[in-house]
C-alpha cells in the first residue's frame, strides 16, 4: 500500500485536533478586537481580566474550591482504594460497579439529583453545595487512579514488613503510603483539574454567593464572543495542561 496515504490522513486529523486550541491561544494575544484579523501582539485582554475585580474574585473562588474538592476526594479515594485492594468482602463487586456507573452517567442527571437533594434538606447553594457536588464527580476518578497503582503492587512487601514485626499501622505508614504516594498526587491533580473545568454540575448547584470562573466564562461565551474570553480560556488551558502533565510525569517517573 502507498505510504503517504496513512501519513496524510494522520497529519490532517492531528492538525484538526490542535487548530481550535492554537487559535484560541494566538487570538488571546491579539491587539485587535475582531476574531479574524491580526492587529499586533498585545496583553491588553489579560490586563482587562486582572483589572476586573469580580473576575479575580471568581478566580480565587475557583482555585479554593478545586483545592478543597481535590483534597477531600483524594483522602476518601485513598482510603477506599486501600479497602477495595486489601480486603475481600461481600458487595465489593457492587461498589466497583457503582464507581463506573457514576463515571458514565450523564453529568446533568447527577447535577439535578444533587440539586433536588440540597433543596430538600435546605442546604444553601454556595461553597458547601459546590464542594459536595465536585467531590461526588471527582471521587471515582481518584479511586480508580489509586487502585490502578495498587494493582501493580508487590504483595510480598507488606507481608515482609509484617513478618519483620511491623504492626498494621507501621506497615501502612512505611510501606503502603510511599508506594501509593505518586498515585495520590496524580489523583489529586486530576481531581483539581476536573473541578476547575466543570460547568454543567456547577451551573445547577452554585448560588449567587459564590461565583466561580468556569460559570463566568460560560455566560460570557453564551452572550457573545468577547476577546477577554480568549485570555481567560488560555489561562484555564495552561493551568489544566500544567496540572495534568505534572500528574502524568509523576506517574511515569514512579514506575521506573
Amino acid at each position: 500500500m502507498t505510504r503517504w496515504l496513512p501519513r496524510t490522513y494522520l497529519t490532517l486529523v492531528y492538525i484538526l485536533l490542535y487548530v481550535p486550541i492554537v487559535v484560541l491561544v494566538v487570538f488571546s494575544f491579539n491587539e485587535s478586537r475582531t476574531g479574524y484579523a491580526w492587529g499586533g501582539l498585545s496583553l491588553r485582554w489579560y490586563e482587562a481580566l486582572f483589572n476586573n475585580r469580580a473576575m479575580v474574585t471568581a478566580m480565587w473562588n475557583s482555585l479554593w474550591l478545586a483545592l478543597s474538592a481535590a483534597t477531600v476526594s483524594t483522602v476518601i479515594g485513598a482510603l477506599t482504594a486501600l479497602a477495595l485492594h486489601r480486603y475481600r468482602f461481600r458487595g465489593k463487586k457492587l461498589l466497583n460497579g457503582m464507581l463506573f456507573v457514576v463515571m458514565m452517567s450523564p453529568e446533568i442527571v447527577l447535577a439535578i439529583s444533587l440539586l433536588a437533594l440540597f433543596l430538600l434538606v435546605g442546604l444553601q447553594l454556595g461553597y458547601v453545595s459546590l464542594l459536595l457536588a465536585h467531590v461526588t464527580f471527582c471521587l471515582p476518578f481518584v479511586v480508580i487512579t489509586v487502585m490502578a497503582r495498587l494493582s501493580g503492587f508487590d504483595e510480598s512487601l507488606p507481608e515482609a514488613a509484617r513478618d519483620l514485626g511491623a504492626s498494621d499501622f507501621t506497615m501502612t505508614r512505611t510501606v503502603l503510603i510511599p508506594v501509593i504516594m505518586p498515585a495520590l498526587l496524580a489523583g489529586w491533580l486530576l481531581g483539581f483539574t476536573l473541578s476547575l473545568d466543570d460547568v454543567v454540575v456547577s451551573t445547577f448547584v452554585s448560588g449567587p454567593s459564590y461565583e466561580i470562573l468556569p460559570l463566568r466564562i460560560y455566560s460570557m461565551v453564551r452572550v457573545g464572543l468577547k476577546p477577554e474570553v480568549n485570555a481567560l480560556g488560555t489561562l484555564l488551558l495552561v493551568f489544566s495542561l500544567v496540572m495534568l502533565m505534572l500528574s502524568q510525569w509523576i506517574l511515569v517517573r514512579s514506575k521506573r
Binding site: V19, P20, I21, V23, L24, F27, G35, L196, D197, V199, P214, I217, Y218, V221, L225, V229, N230, G233, L236, L237, S240, L241
Partner: peptide, 12 residues
Amino acid sequence: ASELVRTYGWMI
C-alpha cells in the same frame, strides 16, 4: 483542555 475551552476554540 476543558470541554468549554475546546468548544470555544471551534466557535472562533
